[in-house]
Design a protein around this nucleic acid. Structure first.
Lengths: 363, 363
DNA sequence: GCATATTGTTCGTTGTTGGAGCAAAATACG
DNA sequence: CGTATTTTGCTCCAACAACGAACAATATGC
């Protein structure tokens, strides 16, 4: 970290006094004095993580390190005021049950849409039908806790940045693509999230694969999202014309989920497999666009679709290979981030926890 | 600059001793002691700027500020060794004619293709048919001068960054799109060019507008470049199927240029006007993708097409508006950078001059 | 001529950091 | 079993950079 050992001493003691670090046990060493471990104080600092999605809303009580304590979910209420009314008592109950002297440091709220980073307002969340909605302040006054709001891809990217595996190369030059009911991305360069002038950077989901293609929820046509969202895959499986707007309500009522399609593909349902592979191909084309535009070191993909990674990875790689401009670009690492690790909820935790460690401009 | 006046004194005197700054005349002030102007030493420091393009290669002798002394051009020789053999004597002659005690600080070489920033090799330049060509070292040993090589969009972006107008808001959050025989882009965030893991970031020219569209020089299909390059506009005007590969040689021999098409559009040639407007529409769609992906503060467009800006601007704005996700995104400033200012040659100068001022990691 | 205003420089003070030196705590080896 | 060696963790001091007060220079206004 470009500081000498002497400097480390004073910095660490400062953090120990501030309570951010804790002394740990001494550890064996092959020779010499045994080193004393240091730990970030995590176990007695609670965080509430909330992930609002198209169909369901997930609620996690977690410690500072992102380790879950409890997870629960309920059907999403799209009206912002009603959603807050549903969330607030659940949060109070969770904290009452698990507090035990521990302190809750805040709420991380993840939303499928663009967020004005300075005011916390939701600019546009097509899946929820929100435009210029200030749910952050509503939840803040309803719970009395600080609330940090972010869109899903950025939250997942922050989770990778702060809680992802360490050590392998430069951490901080990647794109995180979320494939869910919508498709979004977060761009990280030099360890910093690129937000753009109006906080709408990373919307690769609405870059066209084909400008005269199928209509998208955003109102435009041929968006990557219209080809690769879970809704698109589902309607493709059902043999409908690929059009998110029309089949949306139908799917919601039928109760068929992307996980069902993946399960059926694994039991050799040829239509399910074909639908997934086609999604893989389009996703690969979208990723190829990201590679051409930004040439990141690695690309993470999050969402239920990662459960079918072995089935769709060849289609993705093929599509990237057809459009890559150099061999190095074609070899860009594409890494699935399994849904079992709850990346969006971990991202929500990061919104609260990383803010304590990051330089102000990164928070 | 976050330093007190005292500090400025010592920094300035350091630069005066180093010869980077010169004292200027005192200037009138409404009250108080008259301030003494400082100038960057530019007039007696020469730079050779070279712009290699598909059809012609341009050569400019300039001072450190990018002001041209002489400009000449010759037909591009695509063989790298022959090109160096053509360039070296021209450079020697220019320096002999205009030296007069002045010092040449180096050569800036702009190439239409991707550059490995560490080795200076040309990774891939489809227009010239180059793959993994090291023209930098060849020109260095042929002239004995330091040579700095860069692809056209990045060079133009650096020219905007270092020589563009100052004062209006944060300088350093924009995308520069070059529309020439090819289409490329450079991304600048926080005053820094994003190069990507393999130095191929910014290749928006090869992001598809329609993945099953016309074939592109890069080998893929439906690239933005295949719709909006000068070659594409020309073949559209000639009524050919839009396919850069086929019409390329034909156009080269016919001698018809994009400037001719613009001139004809101004004399009310309806086919010329229609071809340009269609290019404008596709360019708008491409810019909309950049806005969705990166949401920059402003987008510069360089190339001959800027000569028809009044004719195509409405088509561009319309296309952006149809795909923008927020009003702020739709209102993104799109600014033409007129070819009369020789942005590519100014960019080549910047490759040499900015290196003397920038922090090492930015150079 | 004096008050005021503004630029440009000097210099003392302050706060940060690198590194030498040292104590602590372990192993290796004769 | 004692001494040398190695490694961690801490203290302290010198070097350095930067802030800002004070001052000199040079103008205008009354």
């Amino acid at each position: 970290m470009r500081v000498g050992r002497g400097m480390v001493t004073s910095l660490v003691s400062e953090l120990l006094v501030a309570g951010e670090l804790r002394d740990g046990a001494t550890v064996d060493a092959p020779r010499g004095r045994r080193p004393k471990m240091l730990y970030v104080r995590t176990h007695d600092r609670l965080v509430i993580a909330i992930d609002v999605r198209f169909s369901r809303t997930f609620l996690m009580l977690s410690d500072f390190s992102g380790s879950p304590i409890t997870i629960e979910s309920f059907e999403t209420v799209t009206d912002p005021a009603e959603l807050v009314a549903e969330l607030a008592p659940r949060i109070r109950r969770l904290l009452k049950q698990h507090r035990a002297g521990k302190d809750c440091e805040g709420i991380g709220l993840v939303v499928p849409g663009m967020i004005d980073h300075t005011t916390g307002r939701v600019l546009n969340a097509p899946q929820l039908g929100w435009r210029d909605v200030n749910i952050r302040d509503a939840l803040m006054s309803a719970t009395g806790l600080p609330v940090h709001i972010e869109n899903a891809p950025i939250a997942c990217a922050l989770a990778q940045l702060w809680l992802g595996q360490r050590g392998e190369g430069s951490p901080g030059d990647f794109v995180y693509v979320t494939v869910g009911d919508g498709v979004g991305a977060a761009i990280v360069v030099n360890g910093e999230v690129i937000r753009g002038q109006g906080d709408t950077a990373g919307e690769f989901g609405h870059v066209p694969l084909s400008f005269d293609g199928p209509r998208c929820l955003c109102g435009s046509t041929g968006c990557l999202e219209a080809y690769t969202s879970n809704l698109a895959t589902l309607s493709r499986y059902l043999g409908h014309q690929v059009s998110s707007t029309e089949t949306r309500a139908l799917l919601h009522e039928s109760g068929l989920t992307i996980d069902d399609v993946i399960a059926r593909a694994r039991t050799r349902d040829p239509r399910a497999l074909a639908a997934l592979k086609e999604t893989g191909r389009y996703l690969g084309l979208g990723i190829a666009s990201i590679v051409s535009a930004l040439n990141p070191k690695q690309i993470f993909v999050g969402g239920e679709i990662t459960g079918a990674w072995d089935l769709i990875a060849p289609a993705i790689r093929d599509a990237i290979a057809t459009r890559a401009l150099t061999e190095m670009a074609a070899a860009t690492m594409v890494i699935p981030d399994p849904a079992s690790g709850h990346p969006r909820l971990r991202g929500a935790v990061t919104l609260v926890s990383a803010r304590r460690f990051a330089a102000p401009r990164l928070a």
